[in-house]
Design a protein around this nucleic acid. Structure first.
Length: 465
RNA sequence: GCCCCCAUCGUCCAGCGGCCUAGGACGCCUGCCUUUCACGCAGGUAACACGGGUUCGAAUCCCGUUGGGGGUGCCA
């Protein structure tokens, strides 16, 4: 029997990195065992039913290379099956009508001195269906739900502690718990791989499964959560979680996938950065960790830098386009002054130094402006605290006035000025010309600028001392 | 509150009873390379939460404590 897994996101408007990780692990599992991945959109809540929300899930998955074999299916389109299931549960006595709102339930709980929540008040009243009624599932009073989680081992939940949960809202729509059971059964899902935040819903789904007599149950595997530095579940409000956002910032899809695969799982041979094909080959669901993992951008930066450096330079140049033209990345120079030839000439050096594509502009901005803005720290360090800086700049200005305008001569001239003064002349020259004390090897690039522009910058810097 | 889950360097991962004086990676620090920075290379820093068991032997198994997290919706 071939394994069938599913990625079943709720369309919330964008793909969350945590969801992407779930999708990836489902995909890795399917790939590694030759199984199938089904994409199913869990939009039982009407508020989530917007076409643009679907795109926000499908497109990033595609660019990450997470492919699926079936779908997307929409739970909203399967609503009739879910409604039938609810009716069946009512008929069989597994569920009943309840006319209490959430507030009613809380008020009753407060009166009775019970913790807030629903305590089965409508259970045996035999209430009729009504316009504002919900349907609740009658959870067993005794016994427990036991299942074996691939990652966590045996899980046990006491039925008596499960409240009679809502399976049909007052507007008549079934909730995801029903949809989950029915759809997983109908789609012959063999393994449910999802975040640990859903662990507590599993016994409810399993109870429905039995009540509905749906046959063989899927095997569950609950992945550890992705957390922020405060160890809290990654959240849309306070954390950077939009996958698309990372993509537009210039993280490469392959690097993102590689990094995500390393959160909760590790290759047995300790080689972390490697092609996805190898990860598929080594991946074992049972080897996935139980503890939550911090989504560390510093590590992502490192991995992404490795991927960028491994690119053929032409490809790097092509990928850089939206960043150098100020489309994906804000740029400090006039886009009209940007010269692709100049960038292409220095691209190999830039490629060596960036962690992500959006880092590119800062390395090349000085090539496309009239006067540079000095980086404050660079200025302090090299110019204010540097020795003999005025003399160095005077010497360079003099030398540059009639030096032959090519990289070798410029470099030699600066070196000679330094030698003559017994001082380091390279860094002051760099700050004066580029505005920063670090960056790409500069003389080839400087030779592409006009002599007057360069002399102007040197004099401007000299005047500030 | 109640239910559930988790616990190895700051971070991610390895370790599945002896191979562990705990390994790799990121970060950080040092040195080399170098016209700067970066890359690269060579080093260094740093962890089995605690307490009880079980066992000839425990990071590995069990129990408890502590700590962290998740859930507790007519969201999923």
């Amino acid at each position: 029997m071939t394994a069938r897994v599913r990625f079943a996101p709720a369309p919330t408007g964008f793909l969350h990195v945590g969801s992407a990780r779930s999708a990836l692990f489902n995909w890795l599992y399917a790939q590694s065992v030759g199984g199938e991945l089904i994409l199913r959109i869990e939009d039982t809540d009407a508020a989530l039913r917007k076409p643009e929300f679907i795109d926000a899930i499908v497109k990033p998955l595609q660019t990450l290379g997470i492919t699926w074999d079936e779908g997307p299916y929409y739970q909203s389109q399967r609503q009739q099956f879910h409604v039938d299931a609810v009716n069946q549960l009512v008929e069989k006595g597994h569920a009943y009508f309840c006319n209490l709102t959430r507030d009613d339930a809380d008020a009753l709980a407060a009166e009775a001195g019970l913790p807030s929540g629903y305590h089965g008040w409508s259970r045996d009243k035999g209430l009729p269906d009504g316009p504002d009624s919900v349907v609740r599932f009658r959870t067993p009073d005794e016994g427990e739900v036991v299942f074996n989680d691939i990652i966590r081992g045996e899980m046990r939940f006491t039925c008596a502690e499960l409240e009679d949960f809502v399976i049909r809202r007052s507007d008549g729509t079934p909730t995801f718990l029903v949809a989950n059971a029915v759809d997983d059964a109908d789609m012959s899902i063999s393994h449910v791989i999802r975040g640990e935040d859903l662990l507590n819903t599993t016994p409810k789904v399993l109870l429905l499964w039995d009540a509905l007599d749906l046959g063989d149950k899927p095997i569950y595997a609950h992945l550890p959560l992705l957390v922020n530095e405060q160890r809290k579940k990654l959240s849309k409000r306070r954390d950077d979680v939009s996958l698309i956002e990372f993509l537009t910032r210039g993280y490469l899809p392959a690097a993102l996938v590689n990094h995500l695969a390393l959160l909760g799982w590790g290759p047995p041979d300790d080689i972390e950065i490697r092609p996805i094909e190898e990860i598929v080959e080594l991946f074992k669901l049972e080897n996935v960790n139980k503890g939550s993992a911090f989504f560390d951008i510093a590590k992502l930066d490192h991995i992404n830098g490795e991927y960028i450096r491994a690119l053929p330079v032409e490809e790097f140049i092509a990928l850089a386009e939206p960043h150098v033209y100020g489309v994906d990345t804000e740029v400090t120079y006039e886009v009209a002054n940007y010269r692709p030839m100049v960038f292409e000439a220095v691209a190999e050096h830039v490629q060596q130094r960036v962690a992500k594509l959006s880092d590119i502009p800062q390395f090349i901005e000085w090539l496309f402006v009239d006067q540079v803005d000095y980086d404050e720290r660079s200025w302090t360090k090299a110019m204010k605290k540097g020795k003999q800086v005025p003399e160095i700049l005077d010497g360079i200005i003099e030398a540059f006035t009639d030096v032959e305008w090519n990289a070798e001569a410029l470099n030699a001239a600066v070196g000679a000025v330094g030698d003559a003064l017994g001082a380091r002349s390279q860094v002051p020259a760099r700050v004066a010309i580029t505005g920063r004390n670090s960056g790409i090897p500069m003389w080839d690039a400087v030779a592409m600028l006009d002599r007057d522009v360069v002399l102007g910058r040197l004099r401007a810097a000299r005047d500030l001392l």
